[in-house]
Design a protein around this nucleic acid. Sequence first.
DNA 1: TGACATTCGTTCGCTACCTTGCGATCTTTG
DNA 2: CAAAGATCGCAAGGTAGCGAACGAATGTCA
Lengths: 145, 145
Amino acid sequence: MEDEHLTVGAWTKRCYFAGRALMDATLRPYDLGSTQWYVLWHLARSGPTVQRDLGRALELERATLSGIIATLVRKGLVQQSSDGDDQRQRLLTLTTAGETLWRDLPDLSFIHQAAFDGIAEADLATTIRVLRLATERLQTRSRKA
Amino acid sequence: MEDEHLTVGAWTKRCYFAGRALMDATLRPYDLGSTQWYVLWHLARSGPTVQRDLGRALELERATLSGIIATLVRKGLVQQSSDGDDQRQRLLTLTTAGETLWRDLPDLSFIHQAAFDGIAEADLATTIRVLRLATERLQTRSRKA
DNA sequence: TGACATTCGTTCGCTACCTTGCGATCTTTG
DNA sequence: CAAAGATCGCAAGGTAGCGAACGAATGTCA
């Protein structure tokens, strides 16, 4: 956290929150959080999805996703029905209101472009490689301990 | 979020949370969160600090810091007193218990090492440069909008 | 000096992340 | 088949982040 001398770790935090802030600000008029947007995005692209699979796709803990889905159901954007096959599972579907809202939502790709456009491909590739390696190492270490 | 094809943005999130998870797991036996640790770290290094300055140093919103300080005060690790000079400001000081706990805390530098040791300096520099540039662009964009 | 603006910390309400523990429901196995 | 184990979703409780609104203290300036 020392000024002008920040570590890679500190920059990943800053960058993550800066992107999130812009995303949240863009979605605020629609009363949507960033993770809620990802849920709609996935359902709009991939169609009805079992909650467990959605959790895996978005890398969210069951408990976290549970709350987010509850919020979206309360807003009437997503419908949660029990799948006939396995009574433990819940099938998630966009409601008509959800589909309508999704169509009205602005395109968020400008965020990624604002952040990374014009940066050399090689540098982006290096960044991804470093972050992926670091992430894998950290996760391995977490699992062991 | 699409596997095997993740964007830089997705990796910054993953990496940030992986590091945080390891930090949280290490601090759990001491009943301390990662941001609480940063507060103690700053107070131990820099001595008594005005709350406003601490917020700037750690880049936390006043509202966020307010809650974290309240938690640390409740735990008896930090003392919050009104500075005589400006009656609006609060001066933060480590209590004796806080100093004792700080001495008992394990060294966390192994986390950074686990993540980044052995990676070429040039690659780390590139990563920092990319993340810093992206962060600055995103923040500029947020301020304008 | 008096009116207005700014700053500092708090509180409230929200998103989103986690762990733990629970009940219900499969699945596997003795 | 029954018992044991695994999995799914939920609820509760904790940490950490945000914006908005507020009171008290302080600055500013006509």
